[in-house]
Simulated scan of single mutants.
Amino acid sequence: MHDQEERILLGHGSGGRLSHDLIENIMVAAFANPALAELHDGARLGIGGTKLAFATDSYVVKPRFFPGGDIGKLAVCGTVNDLAMCGAAPLYLSAGFILEEGLPVDELRRIVASMSTMAQTAGVAIVTGDTKVVEKGAVDGIYINTAGIGALLPQADITAKRVKPDQVVIVSGYLGDHAIAVMGERHGLTLPQQIISDCAPLNKLIQTLLAAVPAVSMLRDPTRGGLATTLNEIAADAGVGILLDESAIPVRPEVQAVCELLGFDPLYLANEGKVVVFVEREYSKKVLTIMRQYPVSNAARIIGTVTAKPAGQVALRTTIGGLRLLDMLTGEQLPRIC
């Protein structure tokens, strides 16, 4: 009797453990090279005497338009932010479109206009691209791929290898806004007006921060899989533990209320305009001062510390004084969130 054939599940796109296993066992195994082995938000490359970052991402969010953004805004911000997390100044993007037969042209115009606005806001140029049209039903309206290149900042060395015990963990603002905004629009829920996607370019904030505080060791945007999954990846790569303080983690009361009603955990929800920063404690006040000068990060706060043990694990000190182990996301809370 033959074993049942293994197939791709929605959970393989969650950014959690299934995604991690898929990438490690199939993609990394097939394409093995030193740049890929870092498993950062993008690749850091040297070409002659020039140091660059290169990133790519695809966007299949459902619905295409949601409070605070749309698939076009998301596509530009997502790749700009991936480059920024590598310690690079984003410069140029490509844009690839897969369009479904029957997509309203006015919708495409709105999406492209949104991309143009975000590219101008981030200070990048969309310099090349591709468009394909497929039969009705082959895709859900429109899928977008963006790739980008940026110049690595000379003072930046952003890598999990620099994450050490006694460093602090800082998050730039409220968690879970994007996931709940998209979910509410998808299911026709009436949610408080305060719940809108946090989708935004972070590159100008990051460039200012790294110029002032080169000691920043690691940056990551907690997108699919949320904060908990992102920190698990960093803890594993760095060989350290991370201890979070639940009372310090920023979640809007409105988002928390929706999570409690529907059984979601905001620590595992996707964000599209947040950054997690690792830095020596002595620089934390300076980091917070800089971050709070920008609208995208004016709610920044310290949420935890790096510990020597247990290596590779993330724990949460709860508001009642207990400890809760935070593992990677398993399965899929909200598919097609970006």
Rank of each mutant, 00 (worst) to 15 (best):
residue 289 T to Q: 14
residue 110 R to F: 04
residue 240 V to T: 11
residue 154 P to I: 08
residue 283 Y to W: 13
residue 69 G to Y: 05
residue 217 S to G: 13
residue 66 F to K: 06
residue 311 A to L: 03
residue 278 F to S: 06
residue 142 I to V: 14
residue 33 N to M: 09
residue 329 L to G: 00
residue 274 K to I: 07
residue 220 R to L: 12
residue 103 L to E: 05
residue 142 I to Q: 00
residue 24 E to R: 14
residue 210 L to Q: 00
residue 173 G to W: 13
residue 187 H to T: 10
residue 74 L to G: 02
residue 96 G to V: 08
residue 26 I to Q: 07
residue 67 P to G: 00
residue 131 T to F: 11
residue 135 E to S: 12
residue 303 I to V: 14
residue 208 T to I: 04
residue 32 A to R: 14
residue 138 A to T: 15
residue 117 T to I: 10
residue 167 Q to R: 12
residue 250 P to T: 07
residue 69 G to N: 07
residue 111 I to E: 03
residue 6 E to K: 15
residue 115 M to L: 01
residue 93 L to I: 07
residue 210 L to C: 00
residue 54 F to K: 03
residue 286 K to G: 04
residue 327 D to Q: 15
residue 193 Q to D: 10
residue 97 F to Y: 14
residue 239 G to D: 09
residue 262 L to C: 03
residue 64 R to K: 13
residue 142 I to L: 15
residue 123 G to P: 02
residue 17 R to C: 05
residue 233 E to N: 14
residue 316 L to S: 07
residue 18 L to M: 12
residue 135 E to V: 05
residue 77 C to A: 14
residue 20 H to F: 09
residue 243 L to S: 10
residue 330 T to K: 14
residue 199 C to Y: 01
residue 114 S to P: 05
residue 174 Y to R: 10
residue 125 A to Q: 07
residue 305 T to H: 10
residue 306 V to W: 02
residue 174 Y to T: 12
residue 119 A to S: 10
residue 88 A to G: 01
residue 133 V to C: 09
residue 58 S to W: 09
residue 154 P to M: 05
residue 153 L to P: 01
residue 112 V to S: 10
residue 16 G to Q: 12
residue 94 S to F: 02
residue 74 L to I: 07
residue 333 Q to V: 13
residue 122 A to C: 08
residue 130 D to Q: 10
residue 82 D to H: 15
residue 304 G to V: 08
residue 77 C to M: 02
residue 304 G to N: 04
residue 56 T to S: 14
residue 259 C to P: 01
residue 167 Q to L: 12
residue 63 P to A: 00
residue 161 K to G: 05
residue 112 V to P: 00
residue 86 C to E: 11
residue 266 P to V: 03
residue 231 L to V: 11
residue 293 Q to I: 01
residue 331 G to V: 13
residue 66 F to C: 02
residue 291 M to W: 03
